[in-house]
């Protein structure tokens, strides 16, 4: 690693001030950023650690019935404490491995927006709201492509607010070596309709499968998506699977998620 200074602010305000400095970068749980720094793929001069900010940690129910998760909340905490949203807690409980879940955070995962990460599917599939130090961003606006988000320079994810669906489930087909999602599908059924978010598949990162959403909104059963298929065009193709294979898996995992949620 190139050397850098580390700031450990105790409040969001102090963190925002620190990140405003030149060449500064926010550090969540570090489970992606630290390996990236080791490979010298990033060279910030200052890292601003967000893991000591108490006001950014924890899970609670908002007055509006939404589940609120602080941006610096670890996957392990979400798995343990998001009991009001079991599908989300279950998803968090299968990210990485136990030691990674004790450090990795929801805000870090969303800020990075890895095309194979689980949280982007959970957030987009739930229609959650990403709250930063300056504004609220709807999930449909937030994800803008592989490793790309609506976050501005120096903006920090302080909280994520999830509306709680009537039924939901996340199905992940793990890539056997990395255990990242080869394809992951988050299905959430609300009174107003069904949302289906897919991670791991598209070169554009997480996306909503609108045909499946329409079909499932009128008939929430695996049969509703029988005739649907996705093209392998624009899907990630690598030694673990072709684009066509991933496209097929999206259908399979969607059915499994519907089956488990229904």
């Amino acid at each position: 690693m190139y050397n850098f200074d580390v700031e450990t602010p105790g409040t969001v305000a102090d963190a925002v001030a620190a990140i405003g400095r030149d060449e500064a970068q926010a550090l969540g749980g570090g489970q992606t950023l630290i390996p990236t720094l080791k490979q010298r793929l990033a060279s910030p001069s200052v890292l601003v650690s967000l893991s000591g900010i108490a006001e950014m940690k924890g899970v609670c129910m908002g007055d509006d019935g939404r589940l609120c998760i602080g941006g610096a909340t670890t996957h392990a905490t979400v798995a343990r404490e998001a009991a009001q949203y079991p599908a989300l807690a279950a998803m968090a409980s299968h990210i990485g491995d136990p030691a990674v879940r004790n450090r990795g955070t929801i805000g870090g995962s969303l800020a990075n927006n890895d095309p194979s990460a689980c949280y982007p599917a959970g957030v987009l599939g739930s229609g959650a709201t990403v709250v930063t130090n300056t504004r609220e961003i709807a999930s449909d606006e937030y994800f803008q492509g592989m490793f790309d988000t609506a976050l501005e320079e120096g903006e920090i994810i302080t909280e994520v607010r999830f509306p709680i669906p009537e039924a939901a489930n996340y199905q992940k087909f793990v890539q056997p070596a990395s255990r990242f999602a080869l394809v992951g599908v988050f299905v959430a059924k609300f009174s107003g309709g069904v949302r289906v978010a897919v991670t791991g598949a598209s070169e554009e990162g997480v996306f909503r499968w609108s045909e499946a959403e329409a079909a499932l909104s009128s008939d929430f059963s695996t049969g509703a998506i029988d005739g649907l298929s996705l093209s392998g065009e624009g899907m990630i193709s690598d030694l673990h699977g072709t684009g066509a294979y991933r496209a097929h898996l999206v259908g399979v995992m969607t059915k499994r998620a519907v089956d488990a949620a229904a």
Binding site: V6, T8, L27, G30, Q31, I34, P35, L47, S49, S51, G52, A76, D97, P98, A99, V100, N102, R103
Partner: peptide, 24 residues
């Protein structure tokens, strides 16, 4: 951060010590 040989407990929780800064 794949192999887990470096796992220690920090405040009672297992973490990969090769993927945490000492200052943290």
């Amino acid at each position: 951060s794949q192999c887990g040989a470096c796992v220690v407990h920090v405040n009672g929780e297992a973490v990969k010590s090769c993927t945490m800064l000492a200052v943290e």
